[in-house]
C-alpha cells in the first residue's frame, strides 16, 4: 500500500461534504457499509469465512494442525496470523515479501484475538510439553476498498468461531468445535480534517491523516488498540473513537451473534 493517488477534485468533494457531516456515499459519519458474511466457504479449511463491507471483500481460513508447543507455554495451543495483500485485490498491491502494511494488519488482528482470549488456548493442549493444536489463521484481501483492519478482524472471528478441531484426521477421536470464549470486534476510526468517520472506503482511507483501531470484548472492555498514519489525534478525538468502538462493536457482535 504505497502512496495511493486520489484526484484533488475528489478529495475536495469529500472534505466539503464532511463539513456538512455527510459522506460521498450517503452514509452518516459513524455508519458502516452493509456487512455481508458467510462461513464454511472452504471445505479444505478447518474454519473459514468471507466478509464483505461494501466493495471490500476478504476471506479468512484456519488450518488446525498438531505441533510442538513453545518452551515457555508447554500447555497452551499456538495461534499464528498472516495477512496477504495479493495483487488480485487492487492494482497497487504487489506480489513479493509481506509489506509493512500487511504485517501491521496481521499483527493488529492477532492482538485483538489473542488479548481477548477468544480462543481458549489451554484447551488446545494434547500432551503437555509435547503436542498442542496450532491454529494458523490466514487472511486474504480479495477486493480492496478500504478498512481492511475491520474486515480482516470480522472474517477472523467468524472463521475461528466456526472452526473445528480435526481430531479424526489425526486419529485423536471425534471432531470438536474450537473452544471460543468471546467475540472481539475491532472498530477503526479514520480522521479526515477534523472529522472522525467509521469504516472508511478507499478514497476516505487514503486521504485520512490518522486512524485508530480499537478492539473490544463482549463486556465492552478494551483489548487492543493501534493508532496509525502520519497525523495525530487529540485526547477528545480519542475519547470519541472509544465511544464509537464500544457502541458499534456491540452492534456488529449482535449481527454475527
Amino acid at each position: 500500500m504505497s502512496k495511493k493517488i486520489i484526484s484533488e477534485i475528489r478529495r475536495d468533494h469529500i472534505f466539503n461534504l464532511l463539513k456538512e457531516g455527510k459522506r460521498s456515499d450517503g452514509r452518516k459519519l459513524d455508519d458502516f457499509r452493509e456487512i455481508k458474511f458467510e462461513t464454511g466457504i472452504i471445505e479444505s479449511a478447518d474454519g473459514s469465512a468471507v466478509v464483505e463491507m461494501g466493495k471490500t471483500k476478504v476471506t479468512a481460513g484456519v488450518k488446525i494442525i498438531p505441533g510442538t508447543p513453545f518452551g515457555d507455554t508447554p500447555n497452551l495451543g499456538v495461534l499464528t496470523t498472516g495477512a496477504e495483500l495479493i495483487p488480485l485485490a487492487h492494482p497497487d498491491f504487489e506480489s513479493g515479501p509481506p509489506s509493512p502494511e500487511s504485517i501491521e494488519l496481521a499483527r493488529v488482528v492477532d492482538r485483538g484475538i489473542r488479548e481477548s482470549g477468544m480462543v481458549d488456548m489451554s484447551k488446545l493442549c494434547i500432551k503437555e510439553g509435547e503436542e498442542v493444536w496450532m491454529c494458523f489463521l490466514d487472511l486474504y484481501a480479495i477486493n480492496y476498498d478500504g478498512n481492511l483492519f475491520d474486515a480482516f478482524n470480522l472474517a477472523s472471528v467468524l472463521a475461528l468461531k466456526t472452526a473445528i478441531i480435526p481430531n479424526e484426521q489425526y486419529g485423536k477421536g471425534e471432531d470438536v468445535p474450537l473452544p471460543i470464549t468471546c467475540l472481539p470486534i475491532s472498530v477503526t476510526s479514520a480522521k479526515l480534517g477534523s472529522s472522525l468517520i467509521l469504516d472508511p472506503n478507499f478514497d476516505e482511507e487514503n486521504i485520512s491523516s490518522a486512524r485508530l483501531t480499537v478492539t473490544t470484548d463482549d463486556d465492552g472492555n478494551f483489548r487492543a488498540m493501534q493508532k496509525g498514519g502520519q497525523g495525530s489525534i487529540t485526547l477528545d478525538e480519542l475519547s470519541h473513537c472509544l465511544d464509537m468502538a464500544v457502541a458499534k462493536g456491540e452492534e456488529i457482535r449482535k449481527l454475527i451473534g
Partner: peptide, 20 residues
C-alpha cells in the same frame, strides 16, 4: 505543545475508566 497523540497502542484488558 498540543498534547496530541502520535503513537498509541494497547493490548491486554482495560475498562474505560482504567484506560482513561
Amino acid at each position: 505543545s498540543t498534547n496530541e497523540i502520535v503513537l498509541l497502542q494497547m493490548d491486554g484488558n482495560m475498562t474505560r475508566e482504567e484506560f482513561d
